[in-house]
């Protein structure tokens, strides 16, 4: 159980301006800028939930995660995780969490992965039997058997990320923090990571807090999204609902042969293309609002006019949704 209430944190940075004159001026008086990394952020997460944390760069995602991990001390506000205040009861708290920072390795650069795992086992005082079981399970699921003896510096990014995830789970944490876990990974590795996280959540009931810029991560993993911008928590909701909130419109892709269909009330043309003029084949991308015109009615009307080869109906994509959200909140 995670409960955060009114978290705020500010930084002060010196403002720098270009040019020689300004540099001399700064020698005598310096202007400071206060950056509000978090303003009054409140939310709570139940055990076993997967929550996606999104927002543009510098919005305060990492600051929140780091606060929940006990790395940062907020200026004000409350945060209680499993009954403890992370930064005050740091050692006990971190024993129950697992953390993966996608941009940075938590493994020891020069030594083989297995040695890193052993160090972690000793640090977290994992029981030998529990450690053996966990290691076996993680090695199996993440496919680590061949790379356990390799020093971390020789691993590919995808291999490293799998090891990072294994490392963060050796001590059976109840909460897993993933800060951009798929950054820089290839498509296959991304899929593997997503599949594994999902499975872990289902089978072990591990709570997962995830930040990412990759909306496919969000779509694959989470029902719930927290949107943060300029340090403020802007939205807390379900992915599907958010999509509807942004735009209930559906997009209709059709492929047809024969006469180009005439458009009618309630349907808007987005794109049109002729594939083969002789065979009279073409494509259209249409938009409609299901409030006014139902999807089936639209397809029926189109099918009457021409020979439909293929039809697909989509909501707006998560990316479009996020772009729309960022625009709406001006972040």
């Amino acid at each position: 159980m995670i409960e955060c209430e009114g978290l705020s944190k500010t930084y002060r940075v010196a403002r720098r301006e270009a040019g020689f004159g300004n540099a001399v001026k700064a020698l005598f008086s310096r202007e400071y800028e206060t950056i509000q990394a978090l303003r009054d952020v409140s939310f709570s997460v139940r055990d076993g939930e997967i929550v996606g944390y999104i927002g543009p760069n510098g919005a305060g995602k990492s600051t929140t995660i780091k606060t929940m991990c006990g790395i940062l001390t907020p200026d004000s506000g409350k945060c209680v995780i499993n009954g403890r205040v992370p930064w005050r009861d740091r050692k006990k708290h971190v024993r129950e969490i697992g953390v993966v920072f996608g941009q940075r390795s938590q493994l020891w650069w020069d030594i083989p992965v297995a040695e890193s795992f052993r160090l972690l086992r000793d640090m977290y005082k994992v029981e030998p039997a529990v450690y053996r079981r966990n290691l076996e399970e993680l090695t199996e699921l993440l496919g680590l058997r061949e790379i356990l003896k390799t020093p971390v510096r020789n691993l590919s990014l995808g291999q490293r990320m799998r090891c990072e995830i294994a490392a963060s789970l050796l001590h059976d944490p109840r909460i897993l923090f993933l800060d951009e876990p798929t950054i820089g990974l290839d498509a296959v590795s991304k899929l593997n990571v997503r599949r594994f996280v999902k499975k872990r959540n289902k089978e072990h009931g591990t709570t997962v807090i995830l930040t990412t810029h990759d909306m496919q991560d969000i779509e694959a993993l989470t029902g719930r999204i927290l949107l943060i911008g300029k340090g403020r928590l802007l939205l807390d909701g379900n992915l599907e609902e958010l999509k509807k909130h942004i735009s209930p419109k559906k997009t209709l892709h059709i492929k047809y042969q024969g006469k180009t269909p005439r458009l009618f009330e309630g349907i808007v043309l987005l794109e049109e293309k002729m594939d083969d003029t002789e065979a009279m084949e073409g494509q259209m991308k249409l938009s409609l609002d299901p409030g006014g015109l139902s999807v089936s009615a639209a397809i029926e009307a189109l099918a009457e006019q021409t020979n439909l080869l293929d039809v697909s109906v989509t909501d707006i994509t998560a990316e479009e949704m996020v772009a729309a959200l960022y625009k709406e909140y001006e972040i």
């Binding site: 720098r16 040019g19 020689f20 540099a23 001399v24 700064a26 020698l27 310096r30």
Partner: peptide, 14 residues
């Protein structure tokens, strides 16, 4: 010039 501007930024260092 670049060195000088760079150096001037660090008032407390000087």
């Amino acid at each position: 010039r670049i060195r000088l501007i760079n150096g001037l930024q660090y008032r407390s260092v000087a």
